[in-house]
Amino acid sequence: MIRVDDLTVSFGRGDARFVAVNQASFDVAANSAFGLVGESGSGKSTLLRALCGLVPVESGTFDLESDKKPQMVFQDPFGSLHPRQTVDQALREPLLIHGVSDQEPRIHQIMENVGLSPTLRFRYPHQLSGGQRQRVAIARALVLEPDILLLDEPTSALDVSVQAEILNLFKDLKEQRNLTYIMVSHDLAVVSFLCDAIAVMKDGRIVEQLSRDRFAAQDAIDPYTNSLFQAYQ
């Protein structure tokens, strides 16, 4: 189980200090998916980056209860792959860093798991479609077999037909690999489809947490959550 307590992240000092995440607390059950929704500037992506150490935490604590580093899948499949590295290099790099010996079978296996044809193995990112790139990014995140996957708007740059394929893939991988997800998105329907519990963020604060059932039924108390539902209509 993931436990986040009073997590605060800020940038700058003095008058220029900006609190991006303000005392966020939530729990995520193992092998479940937790959604963070909110508009741009709500701090949802910063919170996600703080959980994997890409952004320093100012105060508060979090416990991921995993000895493996969480990995992340990013929004823009153009920007999340090194433009001069082939698929093979991208997937091999984490194995090289950790000195894993059986690289060949692992690369084969993970490509198959995320639905990438072996013929794509030596292609560069610019020779792949958006959906294929996102699959490579997912494969790269999973090749070290983490317990936790952080998803930062992983389908918002994709066409809806491709989004459906990637969302299905996330569902399958979660069961197959016993993964726990924390997903950030501005798309309420996407979060509702994948997540078991959802937190709504505004101006760095979590204003409300809802179970998936209540979220799907638009059964919210907070006026801001309700305004999001309103805009979704």
Binding site: A164, A189, F215
Partner: peptide, 15 residues
């Protein structure tokens, strides 16, 4: 292929 807020499908149909 679009998910809905109150979706009851566990998988989305692929185009």
């Amino acid at each position: 292929s679009l998910p809905r807020l109150d979706d009851t499908r566990t998988r989305l149909p692929v185009l």
